[in-house]
């Protein structure tokens, strides 16, 4: 068990060195939420002048409403990297090298997930900082923000589990990207990340309610706009944790199956 954790850390460490080395990617990490929040938030700022819309959003400004959505969106797309890097490692032979070493096999997918989680956390911190500068007030303060980061990390774990599982079946970057996008886009747009459920048509609202993205967004939004609404947060959080366990197990199983001959 100790070996699994230590080995996973070194697998993650490798990804993190590369993450911090890629300046363009780091800049994008900052620029992207800046554009989303600055531009979209500003564009839509008039919406809260309409009392009905304001009530539907449940927030003082659209920016308050949107920030949790942007957090989730960033984490959602960051989760893909786990699977991509496994495919890359397989291609350059690094995966074989890892398998030939005495590390715990499970540490390979787990390490990739941990690195995605940490990268996700860094991105969330940046988004929170930018949002605060743009005037978003996080009701639950620093502890709320810490919980928001934790929820985002747990959510990214589901995504990397998914992408790692797909990567054990799909062997090329292009196909993996296509398949992952096939999941991502609908997940994003059938959730309450950008629009409140109350304004959705019935069929969409039904989907949005069970969409795991909505669960995470609801919790984070609760912490951002309202406060410690445990009745909203706890059920969502439990489902996210259950999904985490399920996807970690599936990805572990898929990885073991594909590498043991």
């Amino acid at each position: 068990m100790i070996n699994l954790i230590v080995d996973s850390w070194w697998v993650a460490y490798r990804e993190l060195i590369k993450f911090f080395r890629q300046r363009t990617r780091l800049i994008m990490v900052v620029v992207q939420p800046l554009i989303w929040l600055g531009l979209m938030g500003n564009m839509m700022s008039g919406i809260t002048n309409n009392p009905i819309a304001a009530r539907a959003l449940g927030a003082k400004s659209y920016l308050d409403f949107m920030t949790p959505g942007i957090i989730l969106m960033t984490v959602l797309f960051g989760g893909v990297f786990g699977g991509l890097s496994i495919i890359w490692d397989r291609r350059i032979g690094y995966l074989e090298k890892l398998l030939a070493s005495p590390i715990n096999r499970g540490a390979i997918p787990l390490g990739k997930s941990i690195s995605s989680m940490i990268q996700g956390a860094i991105q969330v911190v940046i988004i929170v900082a930018i949002a605060s500068l743009l005037g978003v007030h996080f009701q639950t303060g620093i502890f709320g923000i810490l919980l928001i980061i934790l929820i985002a990390m747990l959510f990214s774990l589901i995504l990397s589990g998914l992408s790692l599982t797909l990567a054990s079946i799909i062997k090329t970057h292009e196909t993996l990207m296509a398949v992952v996008n096939f999941f991502m886009m609908p997940l994003m747009f059938t959730s309450n990340a950008l629009f409140p459920i109350t304004v959705m048509p019935k069929w969409l609202a039904a989907i949005a309610k069970v969409n795991p993205v909505s669960l995470a967004v609801t919790s984070i939004r609760e912490l951002t706009i309202h406060g410690w609404g445990w009745r909203e947060i706890l059920p969502s959080l439990s489902i996210i944790i259950i999904l985490d366990i399920v996807f970690i197990l599936i990805s572990q199983f898929a990885f073991q199956r594909e590498t043991v001959e």
Partner: peptide, 14 residues
């Protein structure tokens, strides 16, 4: 055992 595979498995961004 030590193993150097046919494809040189070096991470070139490290």
């Amino acid at each position: 055992t030590g193993y150097a595979a046919q494809e040189t498995a070096i991470d070139d961004r490290l």
